[in-house]
Nucleic acid binder design. Sequence first.
DNA 1: CTGAAAGCGCTAACAA
DNA 2: TTGTTAGCGCTTTCAG
Lengths: 358, 358
Amino acid sequence: MKRISIKDIARLANVSRGTVDRALHQRGNISEQTRNLIMRIAAEKNYKPNPAARMLVMGRAPVSIGVCIPKEIRLFFDQVRDGIMEGAHRFESMGIKANYSPFERYGQGEHERLKEMLGSKIKALIMAPGVDPSLSALIGEAEEKKIHVVCVAGDVEGSVRSTAVCSDPELNGRCAAELMAKFVRPGARIVIFTGMLVHPVHSKEVSSFTEAFEQFADGGKVIEVIENHESEEEAFQKCSALLKRVRRIDGMYISTVNCLPVCTALNAAGRAEKVKLVTTDVFPEMVPWFERGTILASVYQRPYMQGQTAISLVVDHVFSGRPFPPTCYLNPLIVLRSNLRMFREISHQKTRKELNLN
Amino acid sequence: MKRISIKDIARLANVSRGTVDRALHQRGNISEQTRNLIMRIAAEKNYKPNPAARMLVMGRAPVSIGVCIPKEIRLFFDQVRDGIMEGAHRFESMGIKANYSPFERYGQGEHERLKEMLGSKIKALIMAPGVDPSLSALIGEAEEKKIHVVCVAGDVEGSVRSTAVCSDPELNGRCAAELMAKFVRPGARIVIFTGMLVHPVHSKEVSSFTEAFEQFADGGKVIEVIENHESEEEAFQKCSALLKRVRRIDGMYISTVNCLPVCTALNAAGRAEKVKLVTTDVFPEMVPWFERGTILASVYQRPYMQGQTAISLVVDHVFSGRPFPPTCYLNPLIVLRSNLRMFREISHQKTRKELNLN
DNA sequence: CTGAAAGCGCTAACAA
DNA sequence: TTGTTAGCGCTTTCAG
């Protein structure tokens, strides 16, 4: 069915286009009666104003989208940013503009940038939330001002954000567990390395890995969970100590991007060929560990695609009025030695189309 | 500085708006001289077309894109179609229209539909190529007429198609081999089931699996390759015969979507728990075999994403003049029991955003 | 209170 | 080869 226009409504209601406009936009100067009639017809015929026409007559008012994410963590947020910016670029000709305004890192400049963004003329705000407890209030403030907040690479539970695009930590944990279970011998003993258990994402990954591993593996179990607080130093020390303390470890699941210290500690202890690793995400320094067979697989959270998706959701909403889904979880990709070169983080050669390498 | 419009350029160049339009869009029918003048002014004044105005006017003369794919093979082409049509839908307001004109199946109505499409007013043609040797000529004919041909879910080697979006058969084979190698014991004996070895896709999958498996697996090898010619009957018979003939098989790689007959044959022979399967793609009837642990993993070719990508490439080309990449290979997704429910083919609940389940 | 008409920047059909 | 013109759907102004 064709899209209906103001002119059509005017004809149907036997009034002029001006009258319809007044009714639709409650500009007053209109009788209750005609207004009702017009509104009824509009609703019935499912009238949607044509955004292009509106923009045209309203004069250049490009739709700005604020982008507030940290500068980079091991390439992850670089990818998110690329996804957002390249995604936005595709809609440039539709008048979409992304305002990239990063902050240094979580807890540093985050709040200020966000505040700043709220003052500017944006239609939507894409943000990567940390754990700052004030976020929920800021989000409320934004939505209050009709700025749609889309969380990316995380979520703020209990907030009124329009939607969140992220990977599902429980799914990541389960996939990692399933793979690990198939890689190790029966009765295997596994250690988990994670960032901080106070972080809900990490704690979910850990608990769902543990649960799933014990379900999938034949008698295997998780013997220890170690927090590294995202510190390379700490991770290395703790891993080294662990290797001295425990003589039999069959595998390790590293639920944070901080996996290199573990690899080097394993290597230093001469156990790099013995302990099987399942990691998270991917970056160039991991390649040799894949090649040696230390890292068997990695659960990739598709940062680029998360960025692209966030933009898509905003654009679809703004232009087509498509409602935001409550949450948008992406299916993880599994990184293997075979497909390593297909990931944007690894292959920077532009010979292949990059839009979809993730 | 205010934004400059076509009218301004026309005034500056002492020509009419129509002429400026022709110059800017290389529509021909214009003298080299005036064109140069206009282009110079446009560049100088940094002219950018007004997206709203363009959208508005494009709304009435939609850009048609032909879509010529088979009706369905185990949901695969349904997904491709959804990807294309939903992708196109997002650009509806920019005047993009997809003309879905499917054929019954490969070799049946394919040529006719294609011919038909060539006669219609389309700007691009998205097609899923079979093995018809006349395709190359048809593609040549289309490109001759300035109809960009984008192959999806396959390619026509040696043709002048603008680009192809597909999964890389060699990569699929290698990923399958790597997983298989990690799932089975040392010295494992593997059988490959495929469609038809005359098909280059299948033969590449088979050979790269074989090669990679022998590299990854500790002494394992591929002991047999069986063609099923996409027939369920044939697959079942051959698999049953095989199981009688060979007592020890550790795993099977099924490089075609036709995996159910193999599962049932295994089951009938009481070996469903013994032989480990790595399959291709996913559809609802496979679920129980995942749950029983017969199918350990599947290499998913992302049909929906292939469709979306094809449309994206066309749209980006038409609107932004972005050149087509020579070929666009998608990184495969690995289907596991854990993430089974995340695939569009399996989960039809729309609670989660579906755009990205692939 | 309502209608008529101008015009946003662009494209395409037709005239010259 | 170029110019002219009629809209696309909407807002806004000015007359009734």
